[in-house]
Write a protein that binds this DNA or RNA. Structure first.
Length: 260
DNA sequence: ATGTCGCGACGTTCGCGA
């Protein structure tokens, strides 16, 4: 079973990329972030023709997340955002998928960017991350086989940044953000990517500016975390840079996990 | 080069968010 996550930076602008990518990577689940479209604009027909059903939590202009699956999801089981945490933004969607070995809980997030430490947006990021942690503690109790995937907007360690010294303390690199990532690991979640030997300077996002991709000036901010019962079943985890090389790409690349 | 995208608004360019 293969599960992927991809921040597409507008599904309207990137639908053809998603379809092209799925044609060569027929994953069982694709978690999308930054749809930047409302539910009524979601391209259900094109994706259904490609073999995927979608649970959608859209928003006009900003944010928006979706879970694409080959097998239908139980609609009654789909959750949007964090229960008890008031939020104007569509950032989290969760659903349960029947799978060999038991149901899998898929939690797909577009984490708050936070702009800059000290800003109001950074305060919102910290509140959101605190609420997410509390929420996941409950989700894990209810669904032991769980994956937390998405654009975390957190660089977990220095080796996940092209310039850990120059960018130390700046957004995505602060101790507070990293503390929140560690807190998620403290719930028992494991970073799939680091279960395997990986090339140095492996990143999932590159700035559009300053030839960021060509110079590999990137960050690893898109992650797949798995709960304890799943750790032993992760067979592979990789970042697919292929679509980042296509014309008019998303600034993010997909991350793919194989569960055995 | 405050450098690139995507979106949307009383738009034909600008501000915002990333």
């Amino acid at each position: 079973m293969k599960i992927a996550t991809w921040n597409v930076n507008s599904l309207t602008a990137r639908l053809q990329h998603v379809l092209d990518w799925l044609a060569v990577n027929p994953v069982d689940v694709l978690a999308l972030q930054e749809l930047k479209l409302s539910d009524d604009k979601f391209p259900h027909e094109a994706l259904r023709a490609a073999g995927y059903e979608a649970a959608v939590f859209g928003q006009k202009t900003y944010n928006g997340v979706a879970l694409l699956t080959r097998a239908p999801l139980l609609a009654a089981d789909v959750a949007r955002n964090i229960a008890g945490f008031a939020d104007d933004n569509a950032r989290l969607i969760a659903a349960t998928l029947e799978a060999p070995g038991g149901p899998l809980r898929l939690v797909n997030g577009y984490f708050v960017n936070g702009q800059a430490p000290g800003s109001d947006k950074f305060d919102y990021k910290m509140s959101w991350l605190r609420a997410l942690r509390d929420h996941l503690r409950e989700e894990l109790a209810a669904h032991p086989r769980l994956l937390l995937v998405g654009d975390f907007n957190i660089v977990p360690e220095d080796r996940d940044s092209y310039d850990p010294v120059g960018l130390a303390g700046t957004i995505l690199h602060t101790d507070e953000e990293r503390g929140h990532f560690q807190a998620l690991l403290g719930l028992g979640l494991v970073d799939s990517f680091r279960l395997f030997e990986q090339p140095d300077k492996s990143f999932s996002w590159w700035d559009y500016r300053m030839l960021g991709y060509q110079k590999n000036r990137g960050l690893r901010i898109d992650h797949v975390l798995v709960s304890p019962p799943l750790v032993g079943q992760v067979r592979a985890c990789s970042i697919d840079r292929t679509p980042r090389k296509w014309p008019k790409p998303s600034d993010h690349a997909p991350v793919i996990v194989t569960l055995g």
